[in-house]
Design a protein around this nucleic acid. Structure first.
Length: 729
DNA sequence: AGCACGCCGACT
DNA sequence: GTCGGCGTGCTC
């Protein structure tokens, strides 16, 4: 009798599909991969169950092609985590399963690490004096000497020897002096476990004490101002996990996973470290993942997708910069790495640490409700004093390409005092658009409800919302005038203005355009760290986690764009940005200054930040969300739709809403057009669902969504659901 | 999602 | 007469 198994295959299937396993094959257990036929394709899927019966008659079931893993690739903890996430985020389980695996495993390649060949010294080889060989076989002698010193030589190491090293080694093998060995190469980094030269201060000791790796679940929020040494607290806790023989998973935002951070972990921790980031090749990713699964890696540092790394001996999970929006996947399987990590820690019964200088309102709300323990770190290292924030009122001020007089003078002062200045503007290019001075024509993208950004260096107009890129017109397409002028501010323009204002201090511009080349971002930051660059200017990239100890002045060129954003989280983002950027200043003995240029100095958000800092802002923002009935006070989900016609998304959402089960506890808003209705040639609209409690909203979605696919209007749109959206755009 | 089938328009 | 456009439907 043949057996039936349930297989999660990639595709829009709400449930795994059933297949037969022929008698000659071993029955693959839950969590192992199989290759299966689907239509006329062959796919890799993950076994989720071995049911006794199928919903379909067995003559309609097809037979699996091969069993790819005899042992489960994913243990029960992983399979149930993935299934929970697929259910919670209303994403097809097959896609969720495959998204959780490294590409190579998704493609059906064996779950085996790279094998490294190496030549090892034999007992006999140790006894021989290499010089005895020297005359007739100098190459063998050199290699034997190296083998005696190093124990073994990897293939890569052979490059350091002259001539035919392989041949000479072969000779040594024949003489029984060396042997060819094969060992898995997980590509792990070996920690050096060096002692710290600084001791934890009182606050840090208390925070570290709140984190007890190993059995016992607790969520610890480390609310620590920049420079307060959050990382030292992590390192202390990770070191204790290591001594207990337990693994630590550290999740950091994409931009925060720098070589600098990895070096620091390597220097201070004593275990074997696996790093998982986007720059890795498929093979390296697979190795790191397998190292974690095999328990070979003691510490795993990774970005969002590392939330799905298997941990056979888990002891601790750390989420750094827990407020960062990049921890939420923005398309496809829209999971939050932070929320999943907290869930995992709960299920594994281990502690999880959330760290941030500007915690998310979600986490602060959890602290308020007593779900999370909060440790505050207010003391900055080296007695550095908190920066002084001041608002520069731009109203009626003459400006030179966005720089007001007072700001120019302030920069001057800092440069003369041998300080370092960092200017921040969250818009790259020269100007956000080009305008005709004669008729007012604006360079607008024809595929988006947005303007072209003028890039003067490249002499192009570029749309930052789609891939459009075109030459700058010589004259106005509307009236023919040649008087086309840049309108608004971008980093290129500020760079020009700085060059003019400070001819003796060349500015370094750091944005996506200037750091396109591989490694150039790191190089520029390194130059800044050494103090070679005194004047830095850049976007978001500049704000995150890079230590620039000599910065004395930080300027935010334009705070106004963040004050009036369409997204309800825009103020939160601005506040976080201001605080993070401000944290770059005054880390050494000098107190830093922060200058914020704005046309709305009286704005309550800015006032709050200047006078009460982030805690005051967060408290006010939480109260506001409560009053407005927005997250984290209430649960939210977004049904989005997009199509090439303006009507189709609206029509789909309308009939979708008509199908929605009625529940007075779930509020519905819309359909309404997305804040930027047209993007990359597609019109977008959405429906917002909100509820005081998660459960009714979840239940409604569970009942509602399966029916949406069969709506006639659904075929004219691309639609998706976003649970706990990070952005409502 | 991917891939077939099928039914209408312009072309070697 | 065919090549190919993308609407429609299915995959255990």
């Amino acid at each position: 009798m043949t057996k039936t198994i349930r297989v999660a295959v990639p595709g829009p299937f709400p449930e795994p599909l059933d297949y037969l396993v022929p008698l000659r094959m071993p029955l693959p257990p839950r969590g192992s991969r199989v290759r299966v036929p689907l239509g006329r394709r062959e796919l890799v899927g993950v076994v989720t169950a071995a049911p006794t019966t199928s919903n379909l008659p067995s003559d309609r079931l097809r037979t699996i092609i091969t069993v790819l893993d005899d042992e489960p690739l994913l243990d029960e903890e992983m399979t149930s985590l993935i299934e929970w996430a697929a259910h919670y985020y209303h994403h097809p389980p097959g896609d969720a399963y495959l998204a959780a695996l490294p590409v190579r495993l998704r493609q059906g390649q064996p779950a085996e690490p790279a094998i490294e060949s190496a030549w090892a010294i034999t007992a006999e080889g140790r006894e021989i004096n290499p010089h005895a060989l020297e005359r007739r076989a100098p190459r063998q002698a050199a290699l034997l000497e190296a083998l005696q010193a190093e124990g073994s030589l990897s293939t890569a190491r052979l490059a350091g020897f002259d001539g035919d090293a392989r041949g000479a080694l072969q000779r040594l093998v024949e003489r029984g002096l060396a042997s060819l060995t094969q060992a898995p190469d997980y590509g792990l980094i070996l920690g050096r476990g060096e002692e710290s030269n600084l001791t934890l201060n009182e606050e840090q000791v208390e925070a570290a004490r709140a984190i007890q790796p190993g059995p016992g679940h607790e969520v610890v929020l480390i609310d620590g101002v920049t420079g307060s040494g959050k990382t030292e607290v992590y390192l202390d806790a990770i070191a204790r996990a290591l001594t207990q023989g337990l693994q630590t998973l550290i999740i950091v935002p994409e931009i925060g996973l720098t070589p600098q951070l990895v070096r620091r972990f390597q220097q201070r921790l004593s275990g074997r470290i696996a790093v998982l980031h986007s720059g890795l090749g498929d093979g390296e990713r697979l190795n790191a993942w397998l190292a974690a699964r095999a328990g070979e890696a003691d510490v795993i540092i990774g970005t969002r997708s590392a939330a799905f790394v298997p941990l056979p001996r888990p002891g601790l999970i750390v989420i750094d910069e827990e407020h960062d929006a990049s921890l939420k996947q923005q398309e496809g399987f829209r999971y939050s790495a932070r929320d999943l990590a907290v869930l995992r820690a709960h299920r594994l019964d281990i502690p999880v640490v959330l760290g941030s200088a500007t915690p998310s309102l979600e986490s602060l709300e959890n602290v308020r409700r007593g779900r999370y323990t909060c440790c505050r770190l207010r003391q900055r290292a080296g007695e550095a004093r908190p920066p002084v924030i001041q608002l520069l009122d731009m109203r009626g001020q003459p400006t030179q390409d966005g720089l007001s007089r007072p700001l120019v003078e302030q920069i001057q002062r800092h440069l003369q005092a041998n300080g370092q200045v960092l200017l921040f503007l969250n818009r790259r290019g020269f100007a956000p658009t080009l305008i005709c001075h004669e008729c007012g024509w604006l360079a607008e993208c024809d595929r988006c409800d947005a303007r072209y950004t003028y890039h003067r260096g490249r002499r192009r107009l570029q749309c930052h919302h789609c891939d459009r890129d075109r030459p700058v017109p010589h004259h106005c397409p509307s009236c023919g005038s040649v008087d086309l002028r840049p309108l608004g501010l971008g980093t290129e323009r500020i760079e020009t203005a700085l060059q003019a204002a400070f001819p003796d201090t060349p500015p370094a511009r750091i944005d996506r355009d200037s750091t396109r080349r591989r490694g150039s971002f790191e190089r520029q930051m390194e130059a800044a760290r050494r103090g070679e660059t005194r004047l830095l200017l850049g976007t978001q990239m500049l704000a995150k986690g890079h230590h620039l100890p000599a910065v004395t002045l930080v300027a935010i060129i334009d705070a106004d764009q963040g004050l009036f954003g369409a997204d309800f989280r825009a103020p939160e983002r601005l506040a976080q940005l201001v605080v993070q950027v401000a944290g770059r200043a005054g880390r050494a003995e000098r107190a830093g200054e922060v200058a914020i240029q704005t046309h709305h100095p009286e704005h309550p958000l800015l006032q709050m930040l200047v006078h009460g800092g982030y805690p005051a802002f967060a408290e006010a923002a939480l109260a506001e969300r409560e009053a407005a009935g927005l997250p984290p006070a209430r649960a939210m989900a977004l049904l989005r739709a997009e199509a090439t016609s303006r009507e189709a998304p609206q029509a789909f959402l309308k009939s979708a809403l008509a199908e929605a089960p009625h529940d007075p506890r779930v509020e519905r808003l819309g359909p309404y057009p997305a804040p930027m209705e047209r993007r990359a040639g597609r019109y977008r609209a959405q429906v917002m669902l909100q509820s005081d409690l998660r459960a009714p909203l979840q239940n409604l979605l569970t009942q509602w969504l399966p029916a949406l696919g069969s709506l006639p209007e659904a075929r004219r749109v691309r639609w998706s659901i976003d649970v706990d959206p990070a952005e409502t755009l």
